[in-house]
């Protein structure tokens, strides 16, 4: 399972990077969220998968899965929500102001 997931992480990350290198701001933002998903899965995979019960002590299980990556990911999900929203608003406002969401075109206009 870990091997399979490692592969998935790689693909998600690669697609995310490819999108970030694109010119359209919308693509960049979507790429960023793919990148985030990939990193979340990476954190989860690191500690091994399905090694025990969920980290709820009420379950009274013999072993639990690692709670630490989960805490990290939870933080990351919320932060990336804030960041994505900010990027989204920036992209959308700059489109309103500049009439384009193409970064190369914005750059050319900035030079002029």
């Amino acid at each position: 399972m870990e091997l399979l997931l490692a592969l998935t992480i790689g693909i998600l990350f690669a697609v995310g990077v490819y999108m970030i290198l694109a010119r359209s701001l919308l693509r960049v933002i979507l790429g960023l969220s793919l990148l985030t998903h990939s990193v979340h899965l990476l954190l989860l995979t690191m500690s091994g998968l399905k090694a025990g019960a969920p980290p709820l002590l009420g379950e009274k299980a013999d072993s639990y899965v690692d709670p630490l990556p989960q805490a990290l990911i939870l933080t990351s999900i919320v932060i990336s929500f804030g960041v994505t929203s900010l990027y989204f608003v920036l992209a959308y406002k700059s489109y309103q102001k500049l009439g384009t969401d193409d970064t190369e075109q914005m750059r050319r206009e900035a030079d002029e």
Binding site: A6, A14, V15, M46
Partner: peptide, 14 residues
Amino acid sequence: IAAASGIVMTVVAL
């Protein structure tokens, strides 16, 4: 670039 970073991530994960 994308493929290389994907491979690096897979290696890191494993």
